[in-house]
Structures are given as C-alpha cells and as structure tokens.
Write a protein that binds this DNA or RNA. Structure first.
Lengths: 250, 250
DNA sequence: CGTTCCCTTGAGACCGCTCAAAGACCGTGG
DNA sequence: CCACGGTCTTTGAGCGGTCTCAAGGGAACG
C-alpha cells in the first residue's frame, strides 16, 4: 500500500520535474544540494491512502511530487470538512509537526509520490539555511491566506458562488503546475468531496452543479472539468483577482 | 486617531507585561534584547481603527500588547467574514507582509496598543536569530490550525454548535492571557460581529443565542459573558480537547 | 431631544437539508 | 459469462433551518 522507497531510484532534487515550472522561484544550486540532503526519501502511495492521520503527530514534512491529495478535519459523528487540496509542489506537514495537539488528516485522491523530510532536521535548517527557512514561513503565510479565502467562501457565499469559486480555484491551482489539457482538467475527487469542501450536502452539491452547468460556463462530466468561460466563472464565484507571484519550492 | 508613539514612553521588551504569563515560552535575555531593537515603536489606536487594510500591502508586523482586534475579509457587496480574533500576545501581519496580493483587514474592537516591527528587517532576523524565525513559523502553523478548526465549524456545525464553539474559543483564548474575571469575560464585539464570524445572519445569531442561554451553560448580557458550565459548552460546541503548550511571544 | 447603534421579536419565504430510490459503472467471485 | 455488491451520480418529495423584511425598544451620545 505504501512505503518509503528504499534502494529504489528516487528523483534527485537537481532533476526535480517541478522546479523548472514558472510558478516556482529559482533556487541557488547550493540550496538545491542541501535540499537533497534534507530529503530522507520518497513515499509512493496508492489512491485513498492516509498520509497524515488526525490526532497523531507526524514526524515528517512532505512535498507532493505527483498526484492529488486533500487536507481535512472530521467530527466524531463523521461530519467531514475538507480544508484544502494538495497538488504537486505543495508543502505539507508543518502544522502536524510543529504543534503538539490535534491536527488535520491528509489523504490521497490518486496514486501519489511525496518527498519526505525529517522533522528533526528542521531546526538545523533554520540555523544553517535561513533562505529555506524563510521560504517555509512564506509558504505557511500563503496557506493562511488561502484558508482565509475559503472561510470567506463557506461563511458568506451562496451555494452557487461557492461551487464556482471552488472549481475556479482548483482550475487555477492546477494550471500553475501544468495539469491542464487546454481548458480541460481531470478532477480526481467525487461530488462527495466537493460537498465536504463547500460545507454543503451531497445532494445539494449535485443540484448546484446542474445549475452551474446550465449557466454554460463549465462542463463537468466523468470527472473531467472543462472551463468554457473562465471570466464568467470567476464573476459567479466572486473571485478576487489575484496577481500571484512565483513561490518557493521546498 | 492613530499614531506611532514618538518620544512617548513605550514598554521595554524586558518589562513586557505579557511575557511572564504561563502561556508564553521563556526566551533568552539575548533574544529579548534583540526583539527590543527589532521593535520600531508602538501603535496606540482607538476602538474601531483599521490597522491593516484589505488590498493594501502592510509594511509592518504587529504584536498586540493590549486590547482586542479581529481579522476579516469582505466581498464587494459588503458581505463580511471575520476570520479570527486578535488578543494580547498575538502576532499579525505576516500574510500581508510576505505575500504580495490581496489579504485580510484588521480592525480594533477596543482601544489597543500594538508593538510594531518593520518588515524589511525580517530577513535579517531569519539570518541572525533562527530561534525567533522558528518561533514565527511556529506561530504561523498554529494560526493555520486555528483556521482549519474554524473551517470545520462553519462548514459542518449547526448554528448552535458554532456559537457554543465560538464562545468557548474566545473564553479559552482570553483565559490564556488573563482576561477572565472568575468565570466572566467582557466581550467587546457586537452580535453582528459574532454573526459575521459564524457565517450566520444577525437575526439568527440572536435567536441562537437565546437558545444557548436557555440551555443554562452561559449568560451573555451587556456583552459580559459568564460561563456556568464550561464542559457542557464544549460538548455542545463539539470542541476537540486540546492540550495546548506554551507558545512563543514575538 | 433627536440620532444612531444595538438587541430583540415576529412573520413569511426560500435555500439547503434529509430521506428515498433508481440507474450507471466497475471490479470481484462464482 | 453472469450475478453481485460497492461506489458514484442523479432525481423527486417534503421538511426545516436559516434568511430577509419589518418594526419596536433601550442605551448612549451630541
């Protein structure tokens, strides 16, 4: 089901397939070399695996190399809230690592490969590689901003606005890391996942999806999303226009 | 309305009234001395002031010394979502500082005093004071966890659960910094603020508040909150029991 | 003493919920 | 090969939680 690749050939950081992408900042060769030593290995898991468990402290930090995952929290009676999605290049585990208490879970939506970094070397990193430390903080602040945005959506937007917002968010996020095929994107999650992200019931999510399709700006069939009119979708979703700069890749 | 105290006597970090509190970690005298030099001054503002404006990059970082504030986001049509509350000892501004795009606003609920730190010295801090850099990251991860929790509440809890959760959250947070008088807490926000935090309408928030009062675990009158049965409140709010450790104070 | 803000209450509308069930698709095992 | 169970999507029906609109009262303030 899941294992940390032992002798198996792993991707060397200098040949990281993500780093050349425009969304990621350039990094000095020295820092790339350090990241290579910081990387303890790779974790290759199948779809539906739990990478970080709620209520259990994680001893690792991860960068997703390929695949999709999501962060979530659940209540005892089973109600689940998906807090954010994880795409290639996203760095996760800081919360579960630094804080000692309850945290979120992370599950994969597809087969996925993670770079694994040992938490115990984080302090060493802060001492000896301030640039990377700064980048980690930058990413944490960025995630915070995303969560603010999601809170605004769930707390104050209508079902239709929320759904339009979420689909645009996923589309835009996927575009950053080159996952689009033209104006099409293969989404790995079910409508139940979307519902748990939006704070809506499954049934109502489905009906809202119908409505959104009727508006003519999107297609979504067989989990393939096609964006016909991105601007209209953004307006419907009350999306703030964001000029996002390149971000660091850990 | 607001000004950075110039020649006015400000609180020296070594005599910080917050640091002796149990919630805050001990810090080496050398680091306290550095923080003193990092601190550019104090910002004393009256109730209802905007400290950080949405859509405008902030050039400062702040630690709240005294008073209450809140972080929020708004939509163009005026709908507002309060994202979190800021109490003494809380460190804010990282998002608005590090990221270049749209951000949240921060308004005060009472007269308040902030310690002001210049953003441009943040990099220097990361190079020369890794412990403080680490602490800042730790706080960012902690805030992220809080937002996850709020997302779970707004997305998946009922109105009554949300309100119970919020009141307990505020009570617990205030207790940390010694703002309780016995089992009483003076809340500075209106029911409109509570509504905008919970993703509910003002009217329904009021009616939910009635219901919660009827349950007998709380009193809330004239903005004075009395917790009669904390355990019952936590259960109603579906609050995870959190064993929170001491946290750093910047 | 008028204005403003806040809390409260009532009434009715509607958005989103639960319950229920059917069809499509898929992998598995008989 | 087909039967079967599981997951996912879709649809209908009816309930109810939350919303909007409206209005009144109290406290604070100029």
């Amino acid at each position: 089901m899941s294992k940390i690749a032992p002798g198996v050939a792993t991707t060397p950081c200098r040949a990281c397939p993500l780093r050349p992408l425009d969304v990621f900042r350039d990094r000095s060769p020295a820092d790339v070399t350090f990241l290579q030593t910081f990387k303890a290995g790779e974790l290759a898991v199948s779809s539906g695996s739990t990478i970080i468990s709620e209520n259990v402290n994680s001893i690792h930090l991860f960068t997703l190399l390929s695949g999709w995952a999501f962060r979530y929290k659940t209540l005892e009676d089973g109600r689940r809230q998906i807090v954010n999605y994880v795409l290639p290049g996203d760095f996760i585990g800081l919360q579960a690592s630094l804080s000692d208490a309850m945290t979120h879970g992370v599950d994969t939506l597809t087969n996925a490969v993670f770079c694994v970094f040992p938490r115990e070397r984080l302090w060493d990193l802060f001492v000896r590689h301030p640039q990377i430390a700064y980048d980690i903080t930058w990413l944490a602040a960025r995630e915070e901003r995303t969560l603010d945005e999601h809170l605004l959506a769930i707390g104050r937007k209508t079902a239709l606005e929320r759904l339009a917002y979420l689909l645009w968010y996923l589309y835009d996020k996927a575009r950053d890391v080159g996952l689009l095929k033209g104006n099409k994107l293969d989404l790995p999650m079910s409508q139940a996942h979307l519902a748990d992200t939006l704070g809506l019931s499954l049934v109502h999510t489905n009906k809202t999806l119908q409505k959104l399709r009727e508006k003519g700006s999107i297609l979504l069939d067989e989990r393939r999303l096609t964006i016909i009119n991105e601007d209209a979708l953004k307006i419907m979703g009350r999306v703030e226009t964001v000029a996002s700069n390149a971000r660091p890749l850990i």
